[in-house]
């Protein structure tokens, strides 16, 4: 297994997105090929999955909505997930350009997700990781805990969470691209899985990286910048809930109003998370609405 992983290259993992004019048979062949890749290696990289204009709109809006995290020189890049003060991780509201299905549910990605985690999959977590120049590489990790106490059979089970990574700008090797250990989703011993060098995944904006949440991976070190925002989505089987590390924030920021604005076929993906954004006591409630009004008046959107 380890010997095999050493031979895998970035090209082995990469595919062009499914073209819109494919015949049904070609479309099926594309899906089967990408599924085989993700089942074997634990990851697939889909080029040109999201149109450049869609990505650019999200990136532009992030500079306003997440100014506190995006502007260089910020001091409060706090989030419990990330130990590096130069790397922020914040949940993202399902609003504005992010709420465009071309962005959060591009056809190639949804086609694979339906096959891997079921037609009724839900988006179980969604946020942005923003690394600034000088951010060191993350600790290698998996994005989910084992379902059944880490038994050997945990790794033989079908995938239950498909992680989707969307860099908002071109990411070169010295900007700290994601690093994967192909095949490690089937290796219980993380140390053994990491006994070979990882594959670095430099990408152009519009490329989407999908991986099995059990795959060992990490964010690389952003040697000199620029600020590198990367959106992440967790496409979960409808019964899977992940609260690891989310004790102090919701996995997804969504309100009834945001849900209403989504096309109907996508609402079921997010509806489950409404209750995470609710409050119970008066001061919390007043605080929530004061924040909303202030953000609306200052033109920063309704969060």
């Amino acid at each position: 297994m380890v010997a095999k992983t050493a031979a895998v290259t970035l090209e082995d993992l990469s595919r062009d997105a499914m073209a819109a004019d494919l015949s049904a048979a070609e479309r099926q062949a594309w899906i089967e090929d990408a599924l085989a890749c993700i089942r074997l290696h634990g990851a697939v990289v889909v080029r040109n999955a999201i149109p450049p204009a869609v990505i650019a709109a999200v990136n532009e809006e992030f500079r306003v909505r997440h100014d506190v995290h995006m502007a260089p020189g910020q001091k409060k890049l706090f989030r419990r997930f990330q130990s590096d003060p130069l790397r922020a991780q914040v949940p993202t509201a399902v609003a504005g350009p992010v709420a465009n299905p071309d962005f959060f549910a591009p056809p190639s990605v949804v086609a694979l997700a339906r096959e891997l985690v079921g037609d009724d999959f839900v988006i179980g977590d969604m946020g942005v990781v923003i690394s600034h120049g000088g951010a060191t590489r993350q600790e290698a990790h998996r994005d989910s805990s084992p379902l059944f106490d880490g038994l050997e059979m945990d790794l033989d089970l079908p995938i239950f969470c498909l992680m989707v990574l969307v860099p908002l700008i071109d990411v070169s090797v010295d900007m700290g691209p994601t690093e994967y250990w192909p095949g490690s989703h089937r290796i219980r011993d993380t140390g053994l899985a990491m006994s070979v060098p990882p594959i670095q995944v430099p990408v152009e904006a519009g490329t989407v990286c999908l991986h099995d949440s059990r795959l060992v991976h990490r964010g690389g070190n952003n040697v000199a910048g620029p600020v590198r925002p990367l959106l992440y989505f967790g496409f979960h089987r409808s019964w899977h809930f992940d609260d690891d590390g989310f004790a102090y924030k919701p996995q997804i920021r969504i309100t009834e109003a945001m849900l209403e604005r989504l096309p109907e076929e996508h609402r079921q993906r997010f509806r489950w998370a409404l209750h995470l954004n609710r409050v119970e006591n008066v001061s919390e409630f007043v605080g929530l609405w004061v924040r909303r009004i202030r953000r609306t008046l200052s033109g920063q959107g309704y969060v």
């Binding site: 805990s145 379902l147 409808s238 019964w239 899977h240 809930f241 992940d242 609260d243 509806r271 489950w272 409404l274 209750h275």
Partner: peptide, 15 residues
């Protein structure tokens, strides 16, 4: 139940 299990059958997202 295990903490990752959200069984929504019939509950229409009610707690």
């Amino acid at each position: 139940q295990r903490k990752w299990l959200i069984s929504l059958a019939g509950s229409e997202y009610q707690p």
